[in-house]
Design a protein around this nucleic acid. Structure first.
Length: 271
DNA sequence: CAACCGCCCTGGGAGC
DNA sequence: TGCTCCCAGGGCGGTT
């Protein structure tokens, strides 16, 4: 399931093949994604791609005729393949390129989205304008997160997964980061001390950065742009290990539901 | 406003 | 082997 590292790995994989290329054709085989794919998407046919950026888990493909906003949802994958490659089930969208390659979007669960914006969306698009800071930039600091947490009764785990607070910390990396920081996922965000946030902030950054280095986390769905799996799964300490032994203290890891998400923690190491 | 919950969807695994 | 059931989850949108 794509979280921020997987989206960044996808961006790194596709960007060199896209940048500078003309979009010769836009093929939409199924418009039924998270939101119906708008007819305006096809207006970028003939445009040249200027670059691929990431904001939170959204990819923004800049072209000379406007911007494409792409989200991978739960099961979406982007691959660069020869334009005449066999189309398989759930291949919903192709951007055919002048090079003879195409960017192909496959998404079994169709939680992903492809939208069009005439202007750069990061500041004014409803999906992007309210987003919190990027965790891997200097905007995401101890002081920022600590101040944002004051007065909040919400569990720390759902707090750091809230895109208004900080973007891109999904379920896997929230579980892993709280384990490494020794913080109980149910603790109220407003009651976590500054000293503990001082541990947590760099741990979130390191966890995400390390996952990007490893090519993301492949569970069932995710593959890199070349179809290779990500290798971060081998480094997971708690996610998917409920009932197993804690790697630090050998206690049995507990699994609970928090905000309808599977949450795994060590009752001994996390307080 | 904060917090929470339902919902969209399909593949895969468990159980029979 | 094949059926049914349940679960995974990002994030929007509605409710409390």
């Amino acid at each position: 399931m794509p979280e921020l590292p997987e989206v960044e790995v996808s961006r790194l994989g596709i960007s060199p093949h896209l940048t500078g290329q003309q979009i010769t054709q836009v093929i939409v085989r199924d418009r039924r994604l998270r939101w119906p794919v708008p007819a305006s998407l096809e207006t970028v046919a003939g445009a040249t791609i200027e670059g691929v950026e990431r904001r939170a888990k959204y990819l923004i493909i800049s072209t000379t005729k406007g911007y494409l906003i792409v989200h991978l949802g739960m099961s979406g994958a982007l691959r660069v393949v020869p334009a005449d490659s066999l189309v398989v089930k759930h291949d919903h969208i192709d951007l055919v390129l002048g090079s003879g390659l195409c960017l192909r979007f496959n998404d079994p669960r169709r939680f992903g989205c492809w939208l069009y914006s005439a202007t750069h969306p990061s500041a004014d698009h409803p999906l992007l304008r309210e987003l919190g800071p990027e965790p891997l930039t200097d905007d995401f600091t101890l002081d920022y997160l600590f101040n944002a947490s004051r007065g909040r009764q919400q569990a720390i785990k759902t707090f750091i997964m809230d895109n208004h607070v900080v973007v891109g910390v999904g379920n896997i990396y929230a579980n892993e980061s709280l384990f490494k920081a020794g913080i109980h996922p149910k603790r109220a965000a407003g009651k976590v001390s500054k000293a503990r946030y001082q541990r947590l902030v760099p741990i979130i950054k390191e966890t995400l950065a390390r996952a990007i280095e490893q090519g993301g986390t492949t569970l069932q769905d995710f593959t890199q742009a070349d179809g290779q799996p990500g290798y971060f799964k081998q480094e997971l300490m708690v996610y998917g290990r409920g009932g197993k032994a804690c790697m630090q203290c050998k206690s049995t890891l507990k699994e609970i539901r928090l905000g309808q998400r599977s949450t795994v923690y060590c009752p001994q190491c996390q307080r």
